[in-house]
């Protein structure tokens, strides 16, 4: 059995308006609509459009990671940071490597 108990040693977060979450929401919405405008509103060359919208997506992912996901918390956050960094490396190698290799095949 897992022992459950009420812990009163931890200080609760202060009351007040959740600024961090609201700012995160508005930044996410702004970046989403900015990407939409860049893709469909502007008629930039396709490679530039793709670079810009992927850049905006990465910024938005970082907003989620740092403003909502408490990425830097824990007794030793370097553990999860190494895990996520390795996951990102493998994901990047998978997508970029596949596109690169298949560019010679198609």
């Amino acid at each position: 059995m897992i022992k459950e108990y009420k812990n009163t040693a931890v200080k609760p977060e202060p009351k007040g308006f959740p600024w961090k979450q609201v700012v995160g929401l508005f930044l996410s919405l702004a970046l989403t609509f900015l990407a939409l405008w860049v893709a469909l509103g502007l008629s930039l060359p396709v490679p530039i459009t793709l670079t810009v919208i992927v850049g905006l997506a990465i910024i938005q992912a970082l907003i989620q990671l740092f403003m909502f996901m408490h990425f830097t918390e824990g007794t030793d956050p370097s553990h999860q940071m190494m895990g996520i960094a390795f996951g990102l490396f493998v994901a990047f190698a998978m997508v970029a490597g596949t596109l690169w290799i298949m560019a010679f095949m198609l």
């Binding site: 989403t32 990407a35 939409l36 893709a39 469909l40 396709v46 459009t49 793709l50 919208i53 992927v54 905006l56 997506a57 938005q60 992912a61 989620q64």
Partner: peptide
Amino acid sequence: IFIYTAVYLTGMVI
């Protein structure tokens, strides 16, 4: 976010 970008927006641009 990446589906929105890589699937939908990219699909409508290319």
